[in-house]
Design a protein around this nucleic acid. Sequence first.
DNA 1: TTCCCGTGGC
DNA 2: GCCACAGGAA
Length: 222
Amino acid sequence: MKEIPDTKIFKFQRVILNWYKENGRHFKWRNPSASNYQKIIVEVLLQRTKAETIANFFSDFLKLYPSWKKLSTASEKDIQSVLRPIGLYNQKGSRLYKMAQEMRCKNGRFPKSREEVEKIPMMGQYIANAYELFILNKPAPLLDVNMARVLERYFGPRKLVDIRYDPYLKKLSMDVVNHKFPKKINWAILDLGAMVCKKKNPNCQICPLKENCLYFNDNILE
DNA sequence: TTCCCGTGGC
DNA sequence: GCCACAGGAA
């Protein structure tokens, strides 16, 4: 596997942060005043669901369930029916229910390490990374289909089918977000992936990264 | 690998 | 109408 030079990573970080400053999206759960509870449960809501869909729904959800304590007193069925408008509601409902029950046992406190978090039911690799990034303030990649697509188009494709187990993507995404402002880098990549570097009809013409992007440069030669 | 699922962009 | 979407478990 060919090693990606640091200079290419640095340039990617510089350009995408600059783009993010002017074009980034604003969501409530990105606000510094959002509670740890909000930062974690929103990741469940967001699974396989467009961020804009959750943006329209988030306030309603918080009114009903503003805290782990409140959520842990709700029944699984109630949570599921509240989640109906966003899709995948049976699954997300039971996930949140199980997480809330677990958090009730822990008196609402998260464990200190990433390994412990990953043992909590319904918290997989992605949420463990989000936990490191948002709660522990450590660099960690929000490696989803969005980020995978952006990184693969720019730096080159992965080997494995499954994003989550691909060692190349795991290392690359970690290297890219390992920066003074890891949260901004993560959000910048997700936003670019949703707004410009879309799966279908990517708008390469307005993309700030096209100059050094493998996908763009391969396509204009044809 | 497959399933979960309603919504919104096209 | 079709397809894609801040994943995780079985």
